[in-house]
Design a protein around this nucleic acid. Structure first.
Lengths: 240, 240
DNA sequence: ACAATATTGTGACAATCTGTGACGAGAACC
DNA sequence: GGTTCTCGTCACAGATTGTCACAATATTGT
């Protein structure tokens, strides 16, 4: 868990988003907002989210199906916002796997209390199943998330440090996308960037030295001048 | 303990019963339901129940007295469900011998986490028939919980101390998950971590020396720098 | 109860990992 | 061409981890 939890507010009403965002920011949380399901998924891909506040009623994809989708592929905790303190809604939400509900209109104090409670509960879950192991294939490599290992096609295992592994996972999960240093730091390390933070550059350099045929002319992790880095090879994901 | 725990839901509201039943079934539990005290006793007589989810407010015989009755004649763990997060109820419930307490409305994750926690607590110390022995197979090893022995595939038994065995069980039951030193200490030893507690490191080192082909480059228990340890091999559980 | 034995925790030191500052090379801009 | 900015890489300091020896503790046998 990061020092400062990052909360994503998903609601189609701008006033609600602003209101909640301000309340949470004032409380010291890091906050992002999304108006619909598409924006939510984008936010989830772009930064590390610790908790989602999800409106039940959304245009397009419904809040409930979003919740179910979230549950299916991650274990990010979800708090549902419902228009009425409707027992039916709560019951349905429970079924979809939400962790808590807050009925509108709600006080910021209540909301914050619920958020704290859910984050606390999810901090050290006793026996929730982790992420399913996967194989990512690219270039002449296989990254095995179950074993936390990098295999070359000749069968040799290349040892990666924890930081190198985390960075590589982050890149491999988002191929052909430019990722800023800030994003990489957030996604891989779960921390915010300092003023002159060059730690990502160093890690990229170390990774390249292990991955690339010619680290002087990298083919796998390309530099985007002024923008960040991009993982260029095609990646085949193999769920196990 | 059987392979699949059997949970009895006692609540007079049909929706709640259905909902909780479905959530628990989806989680892999066996579930029965009862609307009142009479039905509960019938279910207890008819099948072996591992845990009772008991609503505080019931028509006829009250949840509290049912709980007390249950406690008087068996040691089946009980989790109370109450309408409000009323501190008073909680105190009374725990006094009546409930093992835990969940306030409605509750999230499915919370409920499941509590159930798991209570089952885990009741699993170990109860000197009752004892839980079924299991075989955990991984890499070239078999961990036999019946004999408390570690067998290598060439048939040789490697002796483990109690601490090593407890730590290994803890890891083997949670493969492909990063476990912090704190969690490991809690799960394996049942105690909290001191300021500079390095005992887990030492124990891991000793385990690796026995398990790993090359303890200098461990494949089975991987280190996550700044995070803890992870048990990486696939584990096959064999219930006996 | 006592001693012998095994196990576990602690301190110390070495090895490893990570982030930072420094310096130079290259790109963009004037 | 010169300047400014960005990026690659190196060396180093601080933090984290591996492991040894030894003391503290628990267990066992008599």
């Amino acid at each position: 868990m990061n020092a400062v939890p990052h909360i994503l507010v998903v609601d189609d009403h701008r006033e609600i988003r602003d209101l909640v965002s301000r309340a949470l920011t004032r409380e010291g949380y890091r906050v992002s907002a999304a108006a619909d399901g598409r924006a939510m998924h984008k936010a989830l891909a772009d930064s590390r989210i610790d908790l989602v506040l999800l409106d039940l009623m959304l245009p397009g994809e419904d809040g409930l199906s979003l919740c179910r989708a979230l549950r299916a592929e991650s274990n990010i905790p979800v708090i549902m916002l419902t228009a009425k303190g409707d027992e039916v809604d709560r019951v349905i939400g429970l079924e979809m796997g939400a962790d808590d509900y807050v009925a509108k209109p709600f006080g910021s104090r209540e909301l914050i209390a619920r958020i704290r409670a859910v984050l606390r509960r999810c901090e050290a879950p006793a026996a929730v199943p982790g992420q399913r192991p996967k194989h990512f294939r690219f270039d002449r490599w296989v990254l095995d998330t179950g074993a936390r290992e990098l295999l070359r096609d000749d069968g040799v295992t290349i040892p990666l440090s924890t930081g190198e592994y985390d960075l590589l996972i982050t890149l491999v999960e988002r191929p052909q996308r430019v990722l800023s240093r800030e994003q990489l730091l957030d996604l891989a390390r779960g921390r915010a960037a300092a003023a002159f933070d060059r730690s990502i550059d160093t890690q990229v350099s170390r990774l390249r030295k292990k991955l690339e045929r010619d680290p002087g002319e990298p083919k796998i992790i390309k530099t985007v001048w002024g923008g960040g880095y991009m993982f260029t090879p095609a990646v085949a994901v193999e769920h196990l």
